[in-house]
Amino acid sequence: MPAPFSRDCQVGSTATASESPLPNVAAALRDKRKLKILAIGASPSAGRRSARGGHTGETKDILQQAIRGLDVEMINRGVSGELAAQAAIRIRNEVALHEPELVLWQVGTNDALIYVPLGELEQTIVETLRWLKERKVDVVLVGLQYVDRMAQDDHYRLVRELIRKIAAQENVIAVRRYEAQRLLAQAADSGGGLVPDEFQRSETGYVCLSQYLARAITLGVFGGNLRPRELQNLPPRPQN
């Protein structure tokens, strides 16, 4: 059964993730091994309830509830504000030290904000994904955040598209956080949401992110033929 969504997060649920297999995570589950997840990149544990482990802690809880008998160890090595190039170096060391089955890599937002050249960013991400693949480590990419201010920014849009393109090309799951957060924002603007202020929406986005991540991982393990039951109860889609 895929991990569930809370009511607040259902609005963005249709846009959460591309589906790709997570063979190494599936193998760990099959062998009843502890699942080690390395969370890295910009602010993977930032946000509300950080004292209880942030959204990575919530992702762990949701996964353990969704998959009976699953033992998850979440290794949090995120540095908020970190660029992809810096994270790429640390990923290699952290993988060598902890030997995780899965890396959750939140990437792109800060590179977009300081205008890292697209070619440089692409090379960094692709080389790292291939290095991880060679070492039998699955990856879930967490893409850019949505804020109204950046919606019109060309470079921000290009980075978002680049990450989607890389995910498709390299066959890795990309959690489409931008699209999900945009749906939440649109719902709020049309009066259907619970978080009218953009700063609060950013906070709520973290709560939903843990649910989207857990959903992406369960779908990556058990396959795309599982349809999320919550979709049947979705509220009316906001009009653009």
Binding site: S43, A46, V147, R149, R201
Partner: peptide, 14 residues
């Protein structure tokens, strides 16, 4: 700049 992403720079989000 009406941009909450700035609040997340450098581990400031929490």
């Amino acid at each position: 700049r009406d941009n909450p992403l700035l609040l997340e720079w450098h581990n400031a989000a929490a």
